[in-house]
């Protein structure tokens, strides 16, 4: 059913969206994959996902983005989907300090279930609501730097930085993959890039989904 343009890709990168309930994960996803924003997007139960193909330099990258439910009790189910993810957007709502305060817990959750080499970006969403801001930019940036995370403030509502955020994450992944391909052994590159949706990493049965041109 997808566009023909999306059929040809060199890489499939699995990216997960995590963060507290109501911070705007689903809208970030819909803004990025469909350029849409819905004031009342429905609550995510478990996980949902969407894809978009982007071109970075000469590489066509299919971003497979998994949107997870933020509610704590869904963590047992959603964390299973971190497996095989090479990128993550840890989203908080910059008008609600509580959603930022638990970022560290989310990070731990992520590292517990995903690859250690996963590229993570801290995203302060809802930057259009400047007057209601509760999390100063600098504070969040400091936290990101200390934890080795990328950082950006976005607004899914007015599109600010959404495209950029995903692009940055995907670029970083691509760089890592390329570097690993060049320098270290082949297995590593496959581990990072071999991200088929919901797929387990069986060493013998890799599908050739991440061939560089």
């Amino acid at each position: 059913m997808g566009n023909r343009a999306e059929e040809d890709y060199n890489f499939v990168f699995k990216v997960v969206l995590i963060g507290e309930s109501g911070v705007g994960k689903t809208n970030l996803l819909s803004r990025f994959t469909r350029n849409e924003f819905k004031q009342d997007s429905r609550t995510t139960i478990g996980v949902e996902f969407s894809t978009r193909t982007v071109t970075l330099g000469t590489a066509a990258i299919k971003a497979q983005i998994w949107d997870t439910a933020g509610l704590e009790r869904y963590r047992a189910i959603t964390s299973a989907y971190y497996r095989g993810a090479v990128g993550a957007l840890l989203v908080f709502d910059l008008t609600k300090h509580q959603t930022y305060a638990v970022a560290e817990r989310w990070l731990k959750e992520l590292y517990d279930h995903a690859e250690a080499t996963i590229v993570v970006m801290l995203v302060g969403n809802k930057s259009d609501l400047q007057q209601a801001r509760e999390v100063p930019t600098e504070e969040a940036r400091m936290f990101a730097e200390n934890n080795g995370l990328l950082f950006l403030e976005t607004s899914a509502l007015d599109s600010t930085n959404v495209e950029l955020a995903f692009q940055m994450v995907l670029k970083e992944i691509l760089t890592k993959v390329s570097k690993q391909r060049q320098s270290s052994s082949r297995t590593n590159a496959i581990t990072l890039g071999g991200a088929q949706a919901g797929q387990e990493q069986g060493p013998g049965e890799k599908r050739a989904c991440c061939i560089s041109l």
């Binding site: 059913m1 997808g2 499939v12 949902e48 996902f49 969407s50 894809t51 299919k62 497979q64 088929q196 949706a197 919901g198 797929q199 599908r207």
Partner: peptide, 9 residues
């Protein structure tokens, strides 16, 4: 796999 996932959505 991706097509299947897309379809299952």
């Amino acid at each position: 796999a991706l097509e299947i996932y897309q379809y299952l959505r």
